[in-house]
Nucleic acid binder design. Sequence first.
RNA 1: GCCCCGAUAGCUCAGAUGGAUAGAGCGCGGCUUUCCUAAAGCUGAGGUCGCAGGUUCGAGUCCUGCUCGGGGCGCCA
Length: 615
Amino acid sequence: MTTKHPSPDPRTAISTAFSEAIEKTLGSDFADADPLIRNTANPEMGDFQCNAAMGLAKRVGRPPRELAQELIDAVELADIAETPEIAGPGFINIRLKPETLATALAGMDDESLGVKTSDDTRPVVVDLCGVNVAKQMHVGHLRSTIIGDALARVLERRGRTVLRENHLGDWGLPIAMVLHRLRDNGTDLDALTLTELDAAYREAQTGAKGDAKGLEAARTRQCGPHRIAELEDQQSGADEQRKAASETLVALQQGDAELVRDWNKLIDVTMRAVYEALDLLNVDMGAENNRGESFYKDSLQSVIDYFESNTLCRTDDGALVVDFKDRKRPLLIRKRDGGYLYSTSDLAALRHRTQETGAGRCIYVVDARQRDHFRDVFDATRQAGWGRTSDGHDVDLVHVPFGSIMGPDKKPLKTRSGTNLTLASLLAEAIERGTREVKARSKNPSAPTHGLDDESIAKIGRDVGIGAVKYADLSNDLVRDYVFDMDRMITFEGDTGPYLQYAHARVCSMIHKAGESNIEQASLKLDDPTERQLALVLLKYGSVVEDVARTLEPHRLCGYLHEVADAFNSFYQACPVLKAEDDALKRSRLRISGLTRRVLSDGLGLLGIGSPERM
RNA sequence: GCCCCGAUAGCUCAGAUGGAUAGAGCGCGGCUUUCCUAAAGCUGAGGUCGCAGGUUCGAGUCCUGCUCGGGGCGCCA
């Protein structure tokens, strides 16, 4: 569509008008004062409010209500709004003319739905998933994957090119340990199961990582109890295991043909399961997004060389560390024995991402417990001068931290038997529950799903089950831990994914029943208060998407979609659609319903959640 | 010991750049079914916004100190 609509959102026009009024009234010193235009909390106060008069009155030493009146006299809004009114200490309430609202709503009625393309055209790197190929995917990877995917979709919706990077843990000592373990056990790698893999990983972990010096150091440095317990746990009979694993790593690094072949088999087995999970999750990612630690293995030395030759680091107790001026704890980038760490490979990845992709932003969707680590590697990256592109633009390095998923006991999620819950089993349960819900409803003879074949029901059930899990994950502030509660997330009532999907399906069902065509051509009448309210909510969509792209907080979009569903329900309660008094009104209301449907569907889509037309 | 995060209704949580009587969902009480699948709508009860100071015309929001809970803290990732 090429129809011109300078600004579908009337808020922008109001904001501009008040900016000009402020400058006209108080002089050019106030040209960039924020007019503080907000949606009102209560429809009785109008549609929008300007909160600038109080603060400005303070600055110029005048009564706020008097200044508010002068702003009202100066502001040029007559074309779009009624005369603004002063309320309370100096609030200015603005009510749009009905035709303004209709024009604005019509203005967002195209593919854009009012979402504007970002001015910044540089690509964005999103680091997500981060699966470790030495073990099966567990629920810890769930959040990184679905949050990262949702953020990527939002950024893409704003027209950005997104480079989704799956920074696989596919190299280094852990892999070598597992590889050694499997070979030592005589496991047939061509028939390797994920269960065997997990067992080998656990054996390797407990067997090989004991570290007497580390434990001692952890104690004297008063490390956290978690770390000490972990080290104690690994203390038993470790030396020979570690030695063997080290030898395996060295051989692998030297390109031992047989080892490399086995290494590839190991990756194949684990990644096949990863792709399966990504597919079930409706996450837009595949092998083309893999760029793991092995990709950077040959650039680690040059990262170290760069830091050394530019005196960005120093030697401490044989190790290489980077200092920061605002804190004591340095970042270790090379071990005393010459080995590299995950910080080294993160630095290599950051150099690649900032220097070779042209990205304007690098987003890391990783567990909140790694906050300190990312603060360190980001600062080290900036100190190395890699915080900006070769043409001098700063690259925004941002860690999106998220909390843990807990079991009902508020401890990390486990199965009933106490083992770590795998992602695959969690997804299977979600799909099973979703399908059960859909099937139950299809028993109702008046349900549109009544009589559907099992395959169609299963497809809808999958959308519902997966949508429930995703929505529950994305609808809270990311940084908080939450308790995983399938019973709660799967219900059709309340603030859940299925509730929104169902609201969408109900609108679809109604529009289908109407059987009208070309409703997007209908002229809009927005006289009922609930119609006005729904229109105002729909008009916010573009700015909400923009907010999420900026703040990287998907729960704002969730809250907004819930608001849309609520506003639609109120509208539907108050305004007959199919039985509207005349045909023009019916078509107008169908058009509003259609817009609601598309905003819900588009918004859910940005969260990576499907919106079935029948449920 | 140092650093980070959290604390809002019985429960689970929203409250962007400070703004009008602090909101939603669940649960509890009442009312509503002449348009879609009773999903729902309306309505009532329910709050010292962890504590104490401070800044401000105005603080859940900003500053300082404290309490409680969680997490992290150089040769693991």
